[in-house]
Design a binder for these strands. Structure first.
Lengths: 198, 198, 198, 198
DNA sequence: CATGAATGAGTATTCATTCAT
DNA sequence: AATGAATGAATACTCATTCAT
């Protein structure tokens, strides 16, 4: 009997990841059991080992897949050239869109880094730094252009990312605000804050 | 050795809480073991039960003590009257000062709510909502006064709190910036964003 | 060693029950540890959980299995019709035979009901009442027929059952008396007491 | 300050025994904790050690006190001389009276012998044998006199004692039957069984 | 006479992981 | 590709017991 391409195995692997992502987001990595994941998939816990060599590698896979995806997509979405303000707008739009479309993965990547082994954590931190560097550069350029004024670009980077990423805590697809409204909201706050003057 | 000379219940209880706070912040509640806490305090794990009836009540105590403290201190620091802008400044100064002076407790309160039992989580969420309501009211007042312009006050509240609270992730006492500089940084970002015009 | 070759779930489950029954009868339920049971079976304590979800459910299983067996077997052994005296003889023969063939299970069922959770205890008490009702009915019928004389049928039921069941405390298979002699002994005592007249 | 005779200490010791007796009867010795006993008395667990050197000696004290009391009282109640039938009646009256007046202590002595250390158990078994020997002798005498007919005097002894003692399981002071009715009930059953002829 | 602080051995139970089938 | 039986190390928690005060 010929097994159709992309059959069982592949499907099972995807199902495992999906189940893991939702359970980890809901209960936290340590509180999730392999039996729990297996049950949701409809297989035995021992069968998980066909697909992932350990619980921690399952987490690492989820987090790095997310980080790689994030960085790749920005590489595609990144505007070639443009003013700092234009690039900032593009970045906010990208970040908010991505984070509101995959809030669960993002939430895990932010919450469960402590659960990674030291080595793995280092790898992920490095990826995250690459992402932070994108915004930091935009801010520095904007300051140089004279359009941005920040007391401390590094703190501002952390602050803005924390603000933007915070949406994963409360955002639910199909909520009160459309994605465009969400982007507008955050764009306004980042560029002119609360002030009604500018 | 049954009881070391000079042992003292009050001192032990404080030591347990301190040890628990630091371990939980570093590794996450689920990953922390009572043995680990006890070891750091220099007692046996079973002795913890003289002070806290269960691991989860220990967490609950830490989180509620923090939340109560936060709300009480704001009640003291809150300016009587004043414009929305003045009250916003006061709130930011308070929030940043408090969060930078107790980053560990705050971090735990934000990260470990999932580890609480449903009932306890409800209690804490209610306290948190009371705190969020403070900022929300300031924003609404500012909008009415015409000094603030926000697309959505509720989203803005979450966004600003996420930004301000985010400092607990990276802030370390005695770092590059003084507390005043920190407050100035965040104040600037909240009121006028990145714009150099205003 | 992960799984000894030729290990078999059904066999293991039976071995666990046997070990549990003997240990509980010897030391009492509370004094028996899962480690102790496991050791006797030759497995790890954690492996018990593949077969019984908790220590108390293991006890409940043992007790209810015994009670169900007792009631079913009487249903089979019960004479269709007959005088009260004939039915009494049949009951005594059945009860003494059953109790002397499974003294350990019976002993546990009598001694360890306190160890059951309230809910479970209720269930077992109800089964026991069904059994007691059998003898009570025989006594009432005998009184009506005029062959039995009892000051109080309810007390007599408890008294006779206590007497008959008491054999589980001292009886050992292969002892001085044969099963038939045992039945004769108890029959005599129940029907005419110590009197040498009748 | 002069302490009044028979004060605190004595009262506390009695309170501890009472509390222990009722708790052990209700939950079983192993399930009872010293903290539980102390709580009921209104003292700290550590204070129990002023009165009893260990949990198991507390049990041993309760059981032997009961057994000694039982034997002493029979020595007082025992009729000097008399026929086997008269002595049997006296024994039954004594046994039922004593057991219905102290059902809790008796219950413990019967149920918790397994909880005693081997050495202590031996001691108690010996006392119990002395008590059983009383009834056995009466039966043997009655057989010799020709008024009793028993297939096996030893089995009859166990059987009758099990029947009589069984009342501690269900008897409650102030219940449906008076003590005299109770004695009459059991007397009838022992001497002529269920038969209506004799 | 009584306690409060502490111990340490022990308990049921959980869980990631292994591997013959 | 998947499972069922089993492991062993770990976990929160309990409890009898000790003893300086």
């Amino acid at each position: 009997m010929v097994r159709p391409v992309g059959s069982d195995g592949v499907r099972t692997e995807a199902a495992i990841r999906d189940a893991a992502i939702h359970l980890i987001a809901a209960k936290g990595f340590e509180a999730v059991t392999l039996r729990g994941i297996a049950k949701q998939v409809g297989i035995q816990a021992s069968s998980l080992y066909r697909y992932y060599p350990s619980k921690s590698e399952l987490l690492m896979t989820i987090i790095t897949a997310h980080m790689e995806d994030l960085l790749e997509r920005w590489a595609e979405a990144e505007p070639a050239g443009g003013s700092a303000l234009e690039r900032l707008d593009a970045f906010i739009e990208f970040h908010v869109s991505y984070h509101s479309s995959k809030p669960t993965e993002v939430f895990i990547a932010n919450m469960e880094m402590r659960a990674l082994a030291a080595e793995d954590r280092k790898t992920v931190v490095a990826m995250r730094k690459r992402y932070e560097a994108i915004l930091l550069q935009i801010l520095l350029d904007g300051v140089e252009e004279g359009v941005f004024s920040v007391p401390d670009a590094r703190v501002a980077t952390f602050a803005i990312l924390a603000m933007l990423t915070g949406l994963t805590v409360w955002y639910q697809e199909g909520g009160r605000l459309s994605k465009d409204e969400l982007v507008a909201c955050y764009s306004k706050l980042v560029t002119t804050g609360l002030s009604s003057v500018a």
